Amino acid sequence: QTVHVKGVQYHFPNPEEAVKFALKVAKDLGGRVEFHGDEIHVE
Rank of each mutant, 00 (worst) to 15 (best):
Q1C: 15
Q1F: 15
Q1W: 15
Q1V: 15
Q1Y: 15
Q1I: 15
T2G: 03
T2M: 07
T2V: 13
T2N: 06
T2R: 07
V3C: 03
V3Y: 00
V3T: 01
V3S: 00
V3W: 00
V3A: 01
V3P: 00
H4I: 14
H4K: 08
V5K: 01
V5M: 05
V5S: 03
V5R: 02
V5F: 09
V5E: 00
K6F: 15
K6P: 02
K6I: 07
K6G: 14
G7P: 02
G7K: 04
G7S: 05
G7H: 07
G7V: 02
G7I: 03
G7D: 06
V8P: 01
V8S: 06
V8W: 07
V8T: 08
V8Y: 09
Q9P: 09
Q9F: 10
Q9C: 15
Q9A: 13
Q9G: 05
Q9N: 08
Q9H: 12
Q9L: 13
Y10N: 02
Y10T: 03
Y10I: 06
Y10A: 01
H11N: 09
H11D: 06
H11E: 06
H11Q: 08
H11P: 04
F12Q: 00
F12L: 03
F12T: 00
P13F: 10
P13N: 13
P13V: 11
N14M: 04
N14A: 05
N14I: 06
N14T: 14
N14P: 00
P15F: 15
P15L: 15
E16K: 08
E16F: 09
E16R: 08
E16Y: 10
E16L: 09
E17G: 04
E17I: 06
E17A: 10
A18T: 01
A18E: 02
A18N: 00
A18F: 02
A18Y: 01
V19W: 15
V19M: 15
V19P: 03
V19C: 15
V19I: 15
K20R: 12
K20T: 07
K20W: 08
K20D: 11
K20L: 10
K20A: 12
K20V: 07
F21G: 04
F21D: 03
F21V: 03
F21S: 03
F21C: 09
A22S: 02
A22E: 02
A22M: 02
A22V: 02
A22W: 03
A22G: 02
A22H: 00
A22C: 05
L23S: 09
L23A: 10
L23W: 11
L23M: 13
K24E: 12
K24I: 08
K24S: 11
K24C: 15
K24M: 11
V25D: 00
V25M: 14
V25C: 13
V25P: 00
V25H: 05
V25L: 12
A26C: 09
A26V: 05
A26N: 01
K27E: 11
K27N: 11
K27L: 11
K27D: 08
K27I: 09
D28P: 02
D28V: 12
D28I: 14
L29Y: 08
L29V: 08
L29N: 06
L29H: 06
L29R: 04
G31M: 14
G31Y: 13
R32T: 11
R32W: 15
R32S: 10
R32L: 08
R32D: 04
R32Y: 13
V33I: 12
V33Q: 01
V33F: 04
V33W: 04
E34F: 15
E34K: 11
E34Q: 10
E34L: 13
F35R: 06
F35C: 13
H36F: 11
H36C: 14
H36E: 06
H36R: 13
G37V: 06
G37M: 07
G37C: 11
G37P: 05
G37T: 06
D38T: 12
D38I: 09
D38N: 14
D38P: 08
D38C: 15
D38A: 11
D38Q: 11
D38M: 11
E39Y: 07
E39M: 08
E39I: 11
E39N: 09
E39P: 02
I40L: 07
I40F: 03
I40A: 02
I40Q: 01
I40P: 02
I40T: 02
I40N: 00
H41W: 14
H41D: 02
V42N: 01
V42W: 03
V42G: 01
V42E: 01
V42H: 00
V42L: 03
E43I: 15
E43D: 08
E43W: 13
E43R: 13
E43Q: 11
E43M: 15
